[in-house]
Design a protein around this nucleic acid. Structure first.
Lengths: 126, 126
DNA sequence: GTATGGCGCTATACTTTGTCAAGCAATCTG
DNA sequence: CAGATTGCTTGACAAAGTATAGCGCCATAC
């Protein structure tokens, strides 16, 4: 299952890194700058954000455009391969809406609506 | 984007933990025992595997059945919510096949087949 | 005018997450 | 009767992620 090159195994390993899918999801809504992106995805620290963007760029998923070095202005956008991750994000979204309940520790939370009566699920922390 | 309870944000955080999607993918093919599962997903260490299974069980995605304590025999299976992750795994699989190329450092690798001419992508390590 | 904050990062020190190896009691395999 | 296998747990360690400060320059606020 892990030997040789297995596309799905490799994909999971790529997308599984912390913040990666959040980054993609944010960029699916349009180009973003570095800090803007970090804020948008919920406060990723700059060190990790740099690493993720480097890997995503090296993998041909994200494109970086430096519009000006000083004062600094950079844009990050999705490539064709990056845009295609919409399918993955949508699948996760559908699953989340249907099966994920707010954990009881959280307050003021709206329960997701379900049309068909499906057993829902509580997210449990680590 | 991170405040309150957002199903997709929470889903990403749940699925993003190392080994989690590999575990789900393996269980989608049928029930597994603890060591069997660890081997199948490519050598996950028992400590992490225990943690992941605990969280997945607490979240209602995986079900654990102890068939015998001594000698030990346990089965892990997917619940309804777990089975529904097939959609996510499929989406990742489709994306991987279409856009992911084997990294050049790896030998004896089969290039994924593409019908439409799409720009493919090289997976880059950290 | 000058203080303030924002831009895109990097460096450093730190915490959290994941890994490796050994080990347990009991059966089953050779 | 030796050795492997089952499902874990423990403890010491390595790797991954985080928080904070700071850089040089420009825009806006005062």
């Amino acid at each position: 299952m892990k030997d040789d090159f297995c596309p799905i195994y490799a994909s999971i390993n790529l997308l599984q890194e912390k913040w990666t899918l959040h980054i993609v999801r944010s960029l699916l809504e349009g180009p973003r700058g570095f800090n803007e992106l970090g804020r948008d995805i919920g406060g990723c620290n700059p060190t990790t954000l740099t690493q993720r963007l480097e890997r995503l760029e090296a993998s041909g998923i994200v494109e970086k455009t430096v519009q000006s070095t000083m004062p600094p202005r950079t844009r990050y956008t999705l490539t064709e391969a990056g845009l295609a991750l919409q399918g993955v994000v949508d699948a996760v979204d559908r699953w989340g809406r249907q099966f994920l309940n707010a954990p009881p520790t959280e307050q003021g939370v709206v329960q997701p609506e379900v049309k068909t009566p499906v057993r829902q699920v509580q997210v449990r922390g680590t």
